[in-house]
Design a protein around this nucleic acid. Structure first.
Lengths: 408, 408
DNA sequence: ATTATTTGTTAAATAAACTAACAAAAGCTT
DNA sequence: AAGCTTTTGTTAGTTTATTTAACAAATAAT
């Protein structure tokens, strides 16, 4: 039940019904392709005549194409299958991170084209955009020569005003109130440009990923554990943005208000317990007190190295991972109590040790969730090789074409 | 941007446009009454002809009535004003609490009729429904004889499955998996019956309260501090329910995972710091250690008594309130970081001391919110005399008539 | 008294869902 | 192999609702 906003509603015009049904048809073609017009009519519980008109419109606009005819065993005319048309236009996904920036090119329906390329992130915004321009042009030449760029999606590790294209605060990049949109427009011209916080974009990509199973997921949470903790929440099928576009910051919900100092200035934030630096510092803190010789370069020792040590049965490494797992679960429990999601996704380097930490995470979740149902929420692991952030950037560009029209 | 659910969508039928526009017109009559057809045409940016048809339909259904003619100074035919028609049907709101149950009767648009009545809550569900039946009939006879009951709304201090009408867990009532709907149906017949968690219902009532100002509030949080802590969250204009209808339990987000024991079994929940019993026990804990004579009956000493003592400059009482205020703010900060709401509402007995605690709450909020904007979120105090829970129960019955139709 | 202006209704035009009928294409039956 | 049955997809007509346009009613200004 949604309230109609009396100061910002959308009247139903003559074409509104058509627009609604068109988007439904497009969505069904996306999720059920290959699919015939008769199939669509059954799925939509309407007559085939209506479908003919809708599909003709989609064909004319080039969003959909006809493919081979079906070859069925039953008698009757063979159906013509419909497919999404991945046109000649391209989406460019950009994942801006503190060390390197990653670029992926996809077709208009989000299928990857060529390789993911990367370059060292320049912290000066102007310089960054210039470098990005060079890299994007190079990649387009290499993987998709002569194609039209339809839109670009950027995921940023920080707070973003996705309307104005201003990076409000990205500590890792040391950007504060940086208007990226203007230089990007100068560099790339009048393509659609979308900026979003990386946690929100990751959540978005999971919602828009074609679901294999039957039950659709309307409420999900994506938690990305890395240098910081990014969280994206989708409720009732929509990204939670909040009034200033800063919603979803569960990373700074406390585990203990007088816990360790967090980068945000407060104490005891979840992030201060489970970020990669926090886990590593717990590991080294313990090593140091043991006054053992340090046989590796501390500065370059990463969470992946820690996991490798744990796999080699290094008990200190295992302890560090297990305590990270416990804190991860305790914080997740808060989110689960608050959101009651259908599913929780976890990304970040720590997921490579999921087999090691899973039981501890689950135990901690059950310890603090209010009902047994909540304690058993499915958890999906998103490995780094699936490029969740880049997929999020892609979704920023490709998803709007399939969204429900704003009505009432 | 909302994703269309490919397994549960609503096609636009022939009548869908009409239905959408009808609900918009009804909403605008509700928020702008008295309002003429010509005004509506301007507000909706459509032609008067369309409005004539829409309004005729609403008149026929008895949802709207024509009132006096306007008396304007400009030339031209005088407008006929339209009003919501509060018909002869009644909504019955029921606030079930541990000690007493409160009943309010309203007309079909939520205007109170008669007095709020109450009776002692029977903890046996069958007995409770029987008593309720007696009290409701008595109240109807007294305040609204001969009227038709349109629907009933129940707010419950606990988790409710609003679909099946089952109280999953209400610790204060000692109810677990209690099916209230069946006995209620037996007692009251085939009226619409809505059950909801009290926090969610309170949030709902704030969203549906006719807003005086201009900017509409799509994201709000309602925090009710009483024996426990109830929280209701509205995001994108919709109540956050979650997969199992248990979302919104921010009361059990920890301040410190090894803090005081909470009624939920975990440690250090926000509720364990700010509920009325928690505040009182901190007060008495201090008194007891001081080994002073206790000049009042501890068992019957309420939070109101504490506030009264604080107003009399009892420094211990003031300290207890100030620390409750601080914890209240620290927990609110987590919610604000997570939701980024347009506004936060606070209800419960503690609000009677708002002038005392407000600066401390605000300070604590600012301490843990991530941006200065978030720290300055407006806070609305909902005094007990406004019956926020009963208003929530009313909204359960009256709001659906004005909701946006489900489409796409 | 006439004119201008605003409100609300009615009649006609247009768009899109819906109904029904039909042609095309393929397997099944005789 | 010819005819029957079934399924797909299209087309022509029906209905409903938005939209446009015209008009009557009412009232202040001229």
């Amino acid at each position: 039940m949604r309230k109609i906003n009396p100061h910002n509603f959308t009247l139903a015009k003559r074409g509104t019904s058509r627009e609604i049904n068109r988007q439904i048809a497009l969505t069904l073609i996306r999720t059920h392709q290959p699919v015939s017009r008769a199939d669509l009519a059954r799925l939509m519980e309407t007559n085939r005549a209506n479908i003919t008109f809708l599909v003709n419109e989609l064909l004319e606009e080039g969003l959909v194409r006809e493919g081979a005819q079906g070859n069925q065993k039953i008698r009757g005319r063979r159906p013509t299958f419909l497919y999404l048309n991945s046109q000649n236009s391209r989406a460019i996904a950009v994942d801006v991170r503190a060390s390197r920036t990653f670029i992926m090119i996809t077709d208009s329906i989000g299928k990857q084209i060529g390789e993911v390329v990367s370059f060292q992130t320049a912290l000066d915004p102007e310089k960054f955009v210039e470098l990005l321009g060079q890299q994007v042009r190079k990649a387009l030449n290499a993987f998709a020569p002569g194609s039209v760029v339809d839109g670009m999606g950027f995921v940023i590790p920080g707070m973003v005003d996705h309307r104005s294209g201003v990076v409000l605060h990205a500590p890792a990049l040391k950007w504060r109130d940086v208007n990226l949109l203007t230089p990007l427009r100068r560099e790339f011209g009048e393509v659609d440009i979308h900026l979003e916080n990386s946690g929100k974009a990751c959540a978005l990509s999971q919602i828009w990923a074609t679901q294999t199973g039957s039950s659709p997921l309307n409420d999900i949470v994506f938690v990305s554990v890395s240098d910081g903790v990014g969280v994206g929440v989708v409720i009732n099928g929509e990204i939670v943005r909040g009034k200033h576009n800063t919603a979803g910051e569960f990373g700074h919900v406390p585990l203990s208000i007088d816990g360790p100092r967090c980068s945000c200035g407060a104490n005891g934030c979840w992030e201060a317990y489970i970020s990669n630096p926090a886990t590593l510092s717990r590991y080294f803190g313990r090593s140091v007190t043991n006054r053992q010789p340090q046989p590796f370069d501390v500065a370059n020792f990463t969470i992946e190295d820690l996991i490798e040590k744990a796999r080699g049965n290094d008990s200190k490494a295992l302890t560090a991972l297990h305590s990270a797992a416990r804190y991860l679960g305790l914080g997740l429990a808060s989110i689960i109590n608050a959101v009651d999601p259908s599913r929780v996704y976890i990304g970040g380097e720590i997921t490579e040790a999921w087999d090691i930490i899973e039981p501890h995470v689950r135990e901690a979740i059950k310890e603090r969730t209010l009902t047994s149902q909540l304690g058993e929420v499915p958890i999906g692991i998103v490995p780094a090789m699936e490029y969740p952030r880049l997929r999020g950037a892609v979704a920023l560009v490709t998803a709007p074409a399939f969204a429900a029209p704003k009505v009432a």
